[in-house]
Amino acid sequence: MIFQIVSLLLDIACGLFTGACLLRLYMQMQRISFANPVGQLVFVLTDWLVIPLRKFVPSAGRWDLSCLIGAFLGQLVQYLILSLFVGASAAFVLAPLMAVFGVARAAISGMMGLVIINAILSWVQSRSPITAVLERLCEPVLRPIRRVVPLMGGIDFSPLLALVVLQVLMIVLQHLQASVLSIAAG
């Protein structure tokens, strides 16, 4: 029971931090201004680690590697603490590999969340400043689908199809993780 509680709390805290680092990376790649509530929240959650990492980790083009490493470190901390609770040295050794899969899972889950929130806000015609940010963040995922699937009766099914594709990616990632971990552990 204690392990489940610790696991849940770590998943929330480290997942929030990992998601914020990935969102910061993605917003920078999409050249979205941070002068909005989402950008300000991302800065508050990540500046304490990303700014010091930038002194040691250079950017690679549009990729702010300090954000990516921050996301990885957030997941690594989670799996290292869980490994200490389990007490298995194999789990401790596999923690970096688990962190890589954790970052990938967080990226897919985060995009799913963005698409869902964007779709809901599009139904209610919100005038929130967050709406424009969400539309720009979701556009690279929805644009290719919109090219293939036109509006049907004035309804845009691209968010639904994007969620299906992202869910399939999550299933593939889970199976890949299971395969890699069985090879690494065996």
Results as ranks from 00 to 15, higher is better:
9 L>Q: 00
11 D>F: 08
12 I>G: 03
13 A>Y: 08
15 G>W: 00
16 L>D: 02
19 G>C: 04
20 A>L: 04
22 L>K: 00
23 L>S: 06
23 L>F: 10
24 R>K: 11
24 R>E: 00
26 Y>A: 10
27 M>L: 14
28 Q>T: 10
28 Q>M: 10
29 M>N: 09
35 A>R: 15
35 A>Y: 15
40 Q>F: 09
42 V>G: 00
47 D>C: 06
47 D>A: 13
48 W>V: 03
50 V>F: 02
51 I>Y: 11
51 I>L: 14
51 I>K: 15
52 P>I: 08
52 P>W: 08
55 K>H: 11
55 K>L: 10
62 R>L: 09
66 S>W: 03
66 S>K: 05
68 L>A: 11
69 I>L: 15
71 A>N: 02
73 L>W: 03
74 G>P: 00
75 Q>E: 15
75 Q>K: 13
76 L>F: 14
78 Q>T: 02
78 Q>S: 12
81 I>H: 03
82 L>D: 00
86 V>Q: 13
87 G>C: 08
87 G>S: 05
89 S>Q: 13
92 F>D: 00
94 L>W: 02
97 L>P: 03
98 M>H: 12
99 A>E: 04
100 V>P: 03
101 F>W: 08
104 A>T: 03
105 R>F: 12
111 M>V: 13
113 G>F: 10
117 I>D: 01
119 A>F: 15
121 L>S: 06
129 P>H: 06
129 P>W: 08
130 I>V: 15
132 A>F: 14
133 V>N: 04
137 L>M: 15
138 C>A: 13
138 C>N: 11
144 P>I: 09
147 R>W: 08
148 V>D: 06
149 V>M: 12
150 P>N: 07
150 P>V: 09
151 L>F: 14
152 M>E: 06
152 M>W: 11
155 I>C: 02
157 F>R: 05
158 S>N: 05
159 P>F: 11
160 L>W: 09
162 A>K: 03
163 L>G: 07
163 L>A: 07
163 L>R: 07
164 V>W: 10
164 V>N: 07
164 V>Y: 10
165 V>L: 15
167 Q>A: 10
169 L>Q: 05
170 M>I: 06
172 V>K: 06
176 L>F: 14
177 Q>V: 06
178 A>Q: 12
179 S>G: 10
179 S>V: 09
180 V>A: 13
181 L>W: 07
182 S>D: 12
182 S>N: 13
185 A>E: 11
186 G>W: 10
